[in-house]
Simulated assay, not measured.
Amino acid sequence: MKILVAVDGTKYSREAALWAVKIAKKEKEAKLIAVYVERQLSKEDYLLSDDELDIRIEKKANEIFEKSFEDIDLEGIEVEKVVERGSPASKILDVSDREDVDLIVVGNSSRSGINNFFLGSVSDKVFTYSVRPVLVVKTREKEPVIETVAIT
């Protein structure tokens, strides 16, 4: 089973990573594809060469991957890290198609009101436009416990 989990360094994506790992541990030969999408560039980024920008984004992505999976037991799970640039929802959907994943796991920041209406959330867009199963994870106060998972 291939599980894509979107990470961005927030507590919401950390919760998504936790759920993705818990589901992967219940499956035989599970592969986790962690995707980080660099959405915006700063003014300073435009002054960098392409190589310097790639190095900066790669460093930031590695920090986010480390933070997202810190203290999570990944024993027995293959993890592939993917870094993209652009619109997060579009890139997550692109990677899910390219990698032919069985499940997409994303965190939900629970935004509401006018900001969500105009901007839309990544989880909403992924859920709406994906042709694959999507698990949208809300943040909880305590660690989730999964007894059984059936995906059909």
Results as ranks from 00 to 15, higher is better:
3 I>K: 03
5 V>F: 13
6 A>L: 05
6 A>F: 11
7 V>G: 01
7 V>N: 03
8 D>P: 05
8 D>C: 01
9 G>M: 02
12 Y>G: 00
17 A>C: 04
19 W>A: 08
20 A>P: 09
26 K>R: 11
27 E>D: 04
27 E>M: 13
31 K>V: 11
33 I>E: 01
36 Y>F: 15
37 V>Q: 00
39 R>H: 14
41 L>H: 09
42 S>I: 09
59 K>Y: 10
61 A>R: 08
63 E>K: 07
64 I>L: 11
65 F>D: 05
68 S>R: 13
69 F>K: 04
69 F>L: 03
75 E>N: 10
76 G>N: 01
77 I>V: 10
79 V>L: 08
83 V>L: 15
86 G>M: 08
87 S>K: 11
88 P>E: 00
89 A>I: 08
90 S>W: 08
90 S>D: 13
90 S>Q: 13
94 D>K: 13
97 D>R: 14
98 R>K: 13
98 R>T: 08
100 D>V: 07
107 G>D: 00
107 G>E: 01
112 S>I: 07
113 G>M: 01
115 N>M: 06
116 N>D: 15
119 L>S: 00
125 K>M: 14
125 K>W: 11
128 T>H: 14
130 S>K: 07
131 V>M: 11
132 R>H: 12
132 R>V: 11
137 V>S: 02
141 E>M: 03
141 E>D: 07
142 K>L: 06
142 K>E: 11
145 V>C: 12
146 I>E: 02
147 E>I: 12
148 T>K: 15
151 I>F: 07
